[in-house]
Amino acid sequence: MHNPEENPWKITSESAIYDNPWINVTEYQVLNPAGNPGIYGKIHFKNLAIGVLPLDDELNTYLVGQYRFPLNQYSWEMPEGGGAFDATPLASAQRELLEETGLKANKWTEIQRMHLSNSVSDELSILYLAQHLEQFEPEPEETEQLVIKKLPFEELYQMVCSGLVTDSMTVAAVLKVKIMLMENMLF
């Protein structure tokens, strides 16, 4: 009997299609689970996806607004960015929070690890809750034209529920923190 957790795909050949400092794309010639020939494309991310949900002592949070080139639209989301594999995810989260909002946190909690698009990519996301915040000056990268918005966490939760916030890492972090608040797991 076949073990359902074993890989049923057989790779017959692979070809590098595209490569830049952030991603590479590989096309695989495969035998699919039914044994028939086919192709599969995979996007490999060269960094971790890091997201930080800041939450102050009065249950306010901070969103970052920016125009997202791949979506061709404006997006409100928690501070996010790439984390190098040779750095700790927490150090990357601390850098992103400071860069994008000017905030430093004295308490950090990893709240979620998740794959962002497991059908075409291997991108892994690590999400953090940042608490006991101190304000400094933001230090955005040259590719970032950011607007920072402070708002009550409950307002952000309503934005997620109504579909006004669509960034998957932000949605996951907000829902997780909402549960943590309801179960008195914070502070």
Rank of each mutant, 00 (worst) to 15 (best):
L124E: 11
F69L: 13
E154L: 12
L59D: 10
P37W: 00
A105Y: 10
D167N: 14
S13I: 00
P21S: 10
P152E: 11
N60L: 02
F153N: 00
L181Q: 11
S162R: 15
G41D: 07
Y128V: 03
E139N: 10
V52G: 01
F69A: 09
Q66E: 14
V25R: 14
L103S: 01
A87I: 14
K46L: 06
S92I: 09
G163C: 08
Y28R: 09
V30T: 04
Q131A: 02
E134K: 11
A130V: 04
G65Y: 04
Y18H: 12
N36R: 14
A34R: 15
W76R: 07
K149R: 08
F69E: 14
L127W: 00
M159N: 08
I148A: 07
I43H: 06
I11S: 06
Q94N: 06
A84C: 06
K42W: 06
L97E: 01
Q131M: 13
E134G: 06
N7Q: 11
S119N: 14
M169C: 08
I126S: 00
E14S: 10
S121M: 03
P33S: 13
I179K: 14
T143Y: 04
V147D: 10
W76T: 09
P70R: 10
Q158G: 02
K42E: 03
P140R: 10
F136W: 13
W22S: 13
L48H: 07
D56R: 05
E96R: 14
E155K: 11
L59Q: 11
N32D: 12
P89K: 03
E27T: 08
E99G: 03
Q29G: 11
Q158F: 09
N118R: 12
K42L: 10
F45G: 01
T143D: 15
N3K: 08
K178R: 13
N32I: 05
S125L: 08
I43P: 03
K46M: 04
L164D: 13
R68Q: 12
Y28A: 00
A91I: 06
V120D: 08
G83P: 01
S168K: 15
T61N: 03
D56P: 04
K107Y: 15
R95M: 04
P37V: 05
L53R: 09
Y28S: 00
V177W: 00
E144R: 12
M169N: 07
Y40K: 15
K150V: 08
V30Y: 06
E110F: 02
G83T: 07
L116N: 03
E96G: 09
G81Q: 02
V177P: 02
I11R: 12
Q131R: 15
D167K: 12
I179F: 05
E137N: 11
L71Q: 10
V165W: 00
V165S: 02
P140K: 09
E137S: 12
S162F: 12
N106F: 15
L151I: 07
P4I: 09
D19Q: 12
Y157V: 05
G35V: 09
M180G: 13
E183C: 07
L31Y: 00
G163I: 04
P33K: 15
E154V: 10
V64H: 00
V52K: 08
E6P: 03
K104C: 05
A172Y: 01
N72Q: 14
L133A: 06
T170M: 07
P8S: 12
W108R: 03
N3L: 04
P33R: 15
V165R: 01
T26M: 11
T143P: 03
T166G: 10
H132K: 15
A34E: 07
V177E: 02
